[in-house]
Amino acid sequence: MDNAICFLLNNRSVTLQADPLRSLLDTLREDFGLTGAKKGCGEGECGACAVLVDGRLVNSCITPVIAVEGKTVFTIEGLRETPRFQELSRCFAQAGAVQCGFCTPGMVMAAEALLMRNSFPTEQDIRTALSGNLCRCTGYSAIVAAIMTAAKEGEGLWPASFDPGI
């Protein structure tokens, strides 16, 4: 069996030979040196490893790398080059939404995933979107406030969309 796996990583086409069941997290961190995504639990419980696959938030620690074959993978290292990140960064700074910083990259990816689908989120929408990203420092309030402000003041950066929920 050919173990070559191809995907688009932060807008760059990449190919690697790897154990197909190797976690996407280990692949990103060890094979590509992208250490923004963190290993907090290795079991999909904390969200510190969250990245976007085809625009959706996933826990890279329990995503086998074969699952991203032919897909787009977007990490904090890709996001931080965008104007959307600049806006999130400004709002996170203002709200005091970063403390120890370990959950932050995953948290920012969760915010991006939300705003790409729902550019007018309610507080409840934001809390739901972050519910798989544990933070032990902030109590979430500042993070929720930061995302709320980014959605309001960053109008136009994310495609206008509204998620009606269920």
Binding site: K38, K39, T75, I76, A93, G96, V98, G101, F102, V108
Partner: peptide, 18 residues
């Protein structure tokens, strides 16, 4: 403003596992 904000926000901060 936190002095360590930027490196943490961008994911550039190097924790031990990094």
């Amino acid at each position: 403003g936190r002095l360590d904000f930027s490196e943490k926000m961008t994911g550039a901060a190097k924790f031990c596992q990094d």
